[in-house]
Design a protein around this nucleic acid. Structure first.
Lengths: 133, 133
DNA sequence: CATTGACCTTCCAGCGTCTGGAAGCCTTAT
DNA sequence: ATAAGGCTTCCAGACGCTGGAAGGTCAATG
């Protein structure tokens, strides 16, 4: 099948499929006489796998590792689990950071009048002005 | 003062200060006869402001808007507040997404033996295999 | 058989936010 | 005079795509 159909069926855009091929995440596709890339059901399954892994936030590099593990019938599930748990740790780090930002922002917006006057604790905070209550 | 000192005192690296200048976030610095950039206390204050805003996750574009508001003595705090709240909304979106990823990953890692056997619900899920309990 | 239109190809550029590195100039101290 | 350290510019790379231009291929139609 052509790349457009593979894209539709995998949920990965044609543009992105070509990109994945260019960086070596997926092998080079076969070609028709006219130069069109051709894909098999297995290729579509690989692309779906990639799409799901990306949807869980795994980096391209990690997706490559997961693909390798998936294909390796002698893998040990501990390796897969370790990869996933490291990723969870990274997500937790990001969650913490975002939550801290959010807390600060919520506090500041609560203290800001939000009317037509110019004074604003948000700007004060950014400027490093210490405003005691 | 030279860029290195301004960097130290603002917490923004010299490299990044030059970058901010190149994209127009800060005005072009004055120069010595030898071509070195020079900075004032006010410049350092601006850089600190930028650093704080970036630390709260504001985009460069939003930081530019905040700087404009900061400098505009006729600003209305409602504008600042609206910017901050829009940013909180964006953070909430990211928090939700990360939390969803985390939930799925935690569930999968819990169901994965994580031993020397190859079978692994994480890979099954990514492959789209439906495993009923 | 020619044309149309949809699909495919490659290549280059840009998004956002820096960061690293190379080659070379300026300044200050010895 | 020289050395060391800071400064300069410019190019490239990181991440993961995405858009667009210029042109080739294919299937269906007139």
């Amino acid at each position: 099948m052509n790349i457009g159909i593979a894209a539709q069926r995998s949920g990965v855009s044609a543009k992105t499929i070509r990109y994945y091929e260019s960086i070596g995440l997926i092998p080079q596709a076969g070609r028709t006489d006219g130069g069109y890339r051709t894909y098999s059901e297995q290729d579509v399954a690989n692309l779906r796998f990639i799409q799901h892994a990306r949807g869980l936030g795994f980096s391209i590099k990690d997706v490559g590792r997961l693909l390798d593990l998936w294909r390796d019938k002698d893998r040990v599930s501990a390796d897969v689990r370790a990869l996933a748990m490291a990723h969870v740790a990274e997500i937790d780090r990001k969650l913490d950071e975002l939550q801290r930002m959010r807390d600060t922002l919520i506090d500041l917006t609560r203290r800001c009048h939000g009317d037509d006057r110019p004074d604003c604790p948000i700007l004060d905070e950014l400027a490093g002005v210490t405003v005691d209550a």
